[in-house]
């Protein structure tokens, strides 16, 4: 079984988000970049599913040379090889088209993405990939198992969950619960340096969206401390009018 894991390079979760250039650019100054946490979960599941020589795991990233440390980290965790499509990841549409193009000439049985990237929060790449490749996609996967040529997928729905069976190939957007992220060991870190990382040039894509600017949420006012529960209930009722 051949599995492809799409990884995006995102600011560490503790990052305080600020912007520059009149709020048009994310301030990367001093920001630590990591593998998107959901992609780490996907990678961990991909390794479990191919354990014991049952297949291979390739990671793919659309990014400039600056993302290579993140790709090497994925190799250190345990991916067999990596592809970097050499372009700024303009948006999900651009990224999905690049990856779809690659998959068309290099087919995979299972394509993992994360449920969403924690920076732009599109939740878009998985569904777009599915549509571009004309194969099923499940965007928020809670559990996934493969039996022969069929995937059993658990998906969260309003008020419960659905269990689906789908013939491969599919695109799955991994969410919490799919697997526990794996930490690279010394051997992994050593071998990551020599694992293949192929650089592929992008195809042309007509762009259809553009981030114009960013805003930070309104700062919240001072907290009003209540002396006891009765007073709190009264404040929520009479002042905040939320109960």
């Amino acid at each position: 079984m051949k599995i492809l894991v799409c990884i995006s390079n995102v600011p560490d979760t503790t990052t305080k988000i600020t912007f520059t250039a009149n709020n048009t650019q994310f301030n990367t100054n001093g920001v630590q970049f990591i593998i998107n946490p959901y992609d780490e979960i996907a990678l961990a599941r991909a390794m479990e599913l191919t354990e014991g020589g049952k297949g291979t795991v390739t990671v793919i990233n659309v990014g400039t040379v600056a993302t290579e440390p993140t790709i090497r980290k994925a190799l250190a965790i345990g991916a067999d090889d990596a592809i970097r499509i050499n372009a700024e990841p303009h948006d999900a549409w651009f990224v999905a088209n690049q990856i779809a193009q690659y998959i068309k000439t290099n087919p995979f049985d299972l394509v993992f993405t994360g449920r969403e990237s924690i920076d732009y929060n599109g939740s878009k790449v998985a569904g777009m990939l599915g549509e571009l490749l004309h194969i099923p996609s499940v965007s928020i996967v809670k559990k996934i198992d493969i039996n022969g040529q069929e995937a059993t997928v658990e998906r969260e729905i309003e008020g419960g969950k659905e269990i689906l069976t789908i013939p491969l190939p599919i695109v799955a957007g991994a969410a919490e619960g799919v697997a526990e992220p794996k930490i690279p060991n010394m051997r992994g870190i050593m071998s990551a340096r020599t694992k293949p990382l192929a650089v592929v040039e992008p195809v042309e894509v007509k762009l259809i969206e553009e981030v114009i600017s960013y805003e930070l949420p309104e700062p919240r006012g001072q907290v009003k401390l209540a002396a006891n529960a009765e007073q709190l209930a009264e404040l929520l009722h009479a002042e905040a009018r939320v109960i």
Partner: peptide, 18 residues
């Protein structure tokens, strides 16, 4: 269109041209 970004830490204003 204004949307949440950075997992609720900010908003992005996105122009759609399609």
């Amino acid at each position: 269109v204004k949307k949440t970004a950075f997992s609720g830490k900010a908003f992005a204003l996105v122009e759609l041209t399609s």
